[in-house]
Design a protein around this nucleic acid. Structure first.
Lengths: 151, 151
DNA sequence: CCCCGCGCGTTGTACGGTGCAACCCACCGA
DNA sequence: TCGGTGGGTTGCACCGTACAACGCGCGGGG
């Protein structure tokens, strides 16, 4: 045996490889599936919808994006009529961001298509496996929010 | 109940959300972890190393990238001295791509850092869970190679 | 009371990754 | 021999992104 790699290391490598493989395709797949909403726009809009509004700075922090990037993405979404800015009466600097009805609509459509694709892709999975898979993913991502040194 | 969503649908949605969350960070994380090799370059180079060489077209097909994109990425890698082109004696059109020693080296370094990050992140996982997680990811990605409508 | 520092957001600039279309060149079969 | 096919490159346009510099409103200490 040339390199004393144990089984665990190989398993971790598999996980690393497969997760990477997935991310490589995510952007292009999103473009194919809902061309009107890029992966990033989709994500930001979805966040606004879930949170029932939040500030640009929060988005930047949460997604590890530069605030200028968020500013531009939001500007684009606003220009498309998918996002609305509501100035905070208490602090003129801050604007709460909210999806417009049109934003909700296009988001719902995109979400539906994503969901359908995932449902199809997971259609032959047993319930237990599905549950465990979801649990593992949540657990994996949880860590990264605290310690974000890794992918 | 306003929408009759069953449990399975919600599980699938969780999986969708978590995988997407991961992909969002992948690029930036790669940039932090091995700045000398972007996520895409890393992936392509790793593929060349695994396959012991292949053609640009194969890379494009495998990663759903436009051949022009691959052409440019490969050119960049070549310019950095990480990739070598070997003309096929039987067909002047095709060039087999191979990592150079320098390419192998930088790839090994990047891989080691990625691996370390993943190992750390998964350090407290039980062996069974790790195995199952890996299996699930492989299974999930397998499907997408055949039917690539999703993600 | 005013000024200074800080926090939120925007804008200028630069760069990398991407797709599409047009192209060049080698191969090969009718 | 010639036209179609396939591998690869290049011109172009666009998007997402970071960094730096800035404008502006807020609030606390001279």
């Amino acid at each position: 045996m040339p390199a004393p790699r144990n089984e665990r290391e190989e398993t971790v490598e598999t996980i690393q490889r497969e997760l990477t493989a997935f991310s490589r395709r995510a952007r292009a797949a999103a473009a194919r599936m809902h061309p009107e909403l890029s992966l990033v726009s989709f994500t930001l809009l979805a966040h606004l919808a879930e949170q029932r509004g939040c500030r640009a700075t929060d988005l930047a922090a949460h997604y590890m994006l530069d605030k200028s990037t968020v500013s531009r993405q939001v500007a684009a979404l606003e220009h498309l009529g998918f996002v609305e800015r509501r100035p905070d009466p208490d602090d003129q600097r801050v604007q709460a961001l909210h999806p417009t009805p049109a934003g909700d609509e296009v988001l719902a459509a995109a979400t539906a298509r994503r969901q359908a694709a995932f449902q199809r892709r997971l259609s032959d999975w047993a319930e237990d496996d599905l549950d465990r898979f979801a649990t593992y993913l949540v657990r994996f991502n949880e860590v990264s929010i605290l310690d974000d040194q890794s992918t």
